[in-house]
Design a binder for these strands. Structure first.
Length: 293
DNA sequence: CACTTGACCTGTCCGC
DNA sequence: TGCGGACAGGTCAAGT
């Protein structure tokens, strides 16, 4: 599921909902990925610790605890982090809502806070993980060492982006912007959206994209990520925020999952779905023409 | 080294 | 209904 806007939406929700709460119990369901740490570490460094801050780097969530440890959490394709407070007992919450049904069969980790509220890590496909790392060693994590700049930070310039893209001159421009070491946070949805906006065919080799086009592409990446954060992210299938609610960006999507619907620039032309870089890819065949040298 | 492909899992959808 | 296959928001380990 989650790309930068979805992970940032979850982060903002958790920042509001769990900071300051103290962990009373942690239940880990058998899973190859969640909590590979020794149980003793969980008991020593998670139980009775309080949540100090919730950060994000690319698609990685960083839940800092008062014990000096961080819960590094990656949602991968279908992960969810949902806080359940007291509302499940209150009026106005339909019993069939996700919040009302948690935990469920895809719950991998259940954290109970000392005030009887809960945080559930749900993950249908079990690609995601939650792992305990000393906060001082978070930056040594292999993902953290390799991940590229945050696209929405002002210090990330077009020159930086062009330089990083040029190292991937021989691959498709879509594969390049999906590469988290080039820049952080772009996934399949926003790659397609930004490439349509910049009028670049996703299969075009980077070497055949001009510097001016790359600068334009970065501007469109920033614009689409910003818009999506504003809409609470995209719910294509499973994504929900920290309150179990869906995002609305898909109502604004211009190409993603709009195959066989008209291009917003060319009402007579239908969006096509093709395969690029091993991923389902949506294009307007008129706006986006592959440049082959 | 750069680049591509398959694997990791579970669930859903589509065609027969 | 049932069954097989393709596909799904990400990343990494192998392969070429």
């Amino acid at each position: 599921m989650p790309e930068l806007p979805e992970v940032e939406t979850v982060r903002r929700g958790l920042d509001r909902l769990i900071v300051g709460r103290k962990i009373r119990t942690v239940l880990v369901r058998e899973s190859p990925n969640s909590f590979p740490n020794a149980i003793a570490d969980v008991e020593n460094f998670v139980l009775n610790a309080s949540v100090m801050a919730v950060g994000r780097r690319g698609k990685m969530l960083l839940i800092d605890l008062s014990s000096g440890y961080t819960l590094m959490t990656h949602l991968r394709m279908t992960g969810q982090l949902v806080f359940v407070g007291y509302e499940r007992f209150g009026a106005g919450h339909p019993s069939n809502s996700l919040v009302g049904r948690l935990p469920d069969k895809s719950t991998r980790v259940a954290i109970e806070f000392s005030d009887d509220t809960h945080l559930y890590f749900n993950d249908q496909r079990r690609f995601g993980f939650m792992k305990l790392t000393p906060t001082a060693e978070v930056l040594n994590d292999s993902f953290m060492r390799r991940v590229g700049p945050e696209p929405l930070e002002g210090t990330f310039t077009a020159e930086d982006f062009i330089g990083r893209m040029r190292r991937r001159n021989n691959t498709s421009v879509k594969a390049a912007i999906l590469d988290q070491s080039v820049l952080a946070g772009v996934g399949n949805i926003y790659a397609d959206e930004a490439l349509w906006a910049a009028r670049i065919h996703p299969a075009t080799r980077v070497r055949n994209v001009s510097d001016a086009q790359l600068a334009d592409l970065l501007a469109e990446i920033k614009a689409v990520l910003t818009l999506s954060i504003d809409k609470g992210g995209s719910t294509n299938r499973n994504y929900v925020n920290a309150e179990g609610k869906k995002g609305s960006y898909m109502d604004f999507a211009r190409v993603f999952r709009r195959q066989n619907q008209p291009c917003l620039r060319h009402p007579d032309v239908l969006i096509e779905k093709i395969r690029v870089a091993g991923r389902g890819t949506h294009i307007c065949p008129v706006c986006q023409v592959e440049v082959i040298e």
